[in-house]
């Protein structure tokens, strides 16, 4: 079922209908390699994403959802099409500009947490708050994810869920406009996964951060404002949830 234009270009319930989009994606394509060895990861994606929205990207592995996330996060540049962030053409930005973009506007949450093992929870967050423009304190960020009591623990002394929440605290401490989460619960059991998703939900709600979550898990779709399904580098399904469910209420 091809996606409807309305679902792609209109904000979900959380967004006000007439605001300018945070991301404006038009005909975005990414091809790896050349000639016969060329692999098309994204084959023309159109998308508008608005502030305060919670977006879930679904798709099998190889569908292009990670490539799309990398493009949104300024980790990679498109082969074709345009990618605008707040009207600024991200697709043609140079390395230094992309670094500044990641530093100030984007928070990343990785499936494997990617904490620095030699730094404590507080220091992992402080690492980022030191380099960005208008951060909250590391303690405040860790408080937001419910880790105020484990500030001085090293990653190896924390459980997987705790580590992921440190990673979220690290991502949000800079008050990013965009929170990009790549399978944030992929390595966690259901119970811990819920606490992590609650943290994301809370940040999205309280700070009005645009959150984009990649997942295999279709159940998460119910917590989103809008859900996109990718296949073969295209958006094959887009839907807007009339009513966004809370993480607790999802059908685990």
């Amino acid at each position: 079922m091809p996606p409807t234009a309305e679902a792609i270009h209109s904000p979900g319930s959380a967004g006000a209908p007439h605001r300018a989009p945070v991301f404006e994606v038009r005909g975005l394509a990414r091809v790896f390699g050349e000639g016969t060895a060329a692999v098309t990861a994204l084959a023309g994606v159109d998308l508008d994403l608005f502030a305060g929205e919670l977006i879930v990207l679904l798709g099998a592995s190889g569908s292009g959802k990670s490539t799309l996330l990398n493009q949104l996060g300024g980790l990679d540049s498109p082969t074709q099409g345009t990618l605008r962030y707040r009207g600024w053409n991200l697709g043609v930005a140079d390395e230094a500009a992309l670094t500044q973009f990641r530093r100030n506007a984007v928070g990343f949450v990785f499936q494997a947490y990617n904490l620095i093992p030699s730094l404590t929870a507080r220091e992992n967050v402080a690492l980022i708050t030191e380099i960005c423009r208008d951060p909250m304190t590391p303690e405040a960020a860790l408080d937001l994810v419910g880790l105020g009591a484990r500030l001085d623990h090293f990653p190896a002394q924390l459980s997987g869920g705790e580590q992921q929440r440190v990673a979220i605290a690290r991502a949000i401490a800079k008050r990013p406009e965009v929170l990009l989460c790549d399978e944030p619960t992929g390595a966690l059991d259901v119970k811990t996964g819920i606490t992590v998703l609650e943290a994301i939900e809370r940040i999205n709600g309280e700070l009005g951060t645009l959150a984009v979550i990649i997942t295999h898990n279709a159940i998460l779709a119910d917590m989103a404002d809008r859900v996109f399904t990718l296949s073969d580098g295209r958006i094959v399904n887009a839907r807007t949830n009339a009513h966004r469910g809370s993480v607790r209420d999802l059908a685990w």
Binding site: R102, R103, I116
Partner: peptide, 16 residues
Amino acid sequence: ARELATLRVLGFTRRE
């Protein structure tokens, strides 16, 4: 490598 790449993703410059 992973740690350093993470720092790059998080917005550290090459120099940093």
